[in-house]
């Protein structure tokens, strides 16, 4: 298996190439589009399935529960003599719970984003980086065999791509 890639100057050329590749039988999984700025594209399946919101909510809950446990258990575990002063103070602890919830939500969202966007993966390099940096749009496609590779090359050529 090897990868074919083409560089485009214009968005509509790139989208056209992508549509044609799909018609050739490539799945969305095979096709990767890279650009130096976010492009206004049609919704695709992968896009809608982001769980970042859900994770941030879960992270927030986790942080809040953690803060509740921390404040309450720490205060209780201390066995401090307080001469009747409250040792567990929900009003005051609410502030810490809030802050830790927010922190939990932020960290969870970050973690989920890194995971979903496939950042920090070993072996995934920036092969087309220098081309993307020039402002071009790169469409890379994984080809299972030689015929498919030829198909891909043909599509790229027909859409005005510069092969890389």
């Amino acid at each position: 298996m090897h990868t074919k890639a083409g560089a485009f100057d214009k968005v509509n050329e790139a989208t056209m190439a992508m549509n044609r590749l799909r018609m050739e039988g490539f799945t969305p999984k095979d096709i990767t589009m890279m650009s130096s700025e976010p492009l206004p594209l049609d919704e695709d399946d992968e896009k809608s399935r982001s769980l970042i919101w859900l994770f941030s909510i879960l992270g927030g809950i986790l942080g809040g529960v953690g803060a509740t446990l921390l404040t309450t258990l720490a205060s209780k575990q201390m066995n401090l003599v307080t001469g009747g002063m409250p040792i567990v103070a929900p009003w005051a602890f609410g502030i810490i719970v809030f802050e830790m919830s927010a922190l939990g939500a932020i960290l969870a969202a970050l973690g989920r984003m890194v995971y979903e966007a496939r950042l920090l993966r070993r072996g995934v390099g920036a092969e087309y980086g220098s081309v993307v940096a020039q402002g071009k749009i790169v469409v890379a496609v994984d080809c299972a065999d030689e015929t498919r590779a030829q198909n891909a090359e043909r599509v790229f050529a027909s859409c005005g791509a510069e092969m890389i």
Partner: peptide, 20 residues
């Protein structure tokens, strides 16, 4: 962090920034 600028990455980045 291995940013390649794929459509997926752009989408997730914008979503995450919005959440933040």
């Amino acid at each position: 962090a291995g940013w390649r600028g794929t459509a997926l990455q752009w989408d997730r980045l914008e979503k995450a920034v919005r959440v933040m």
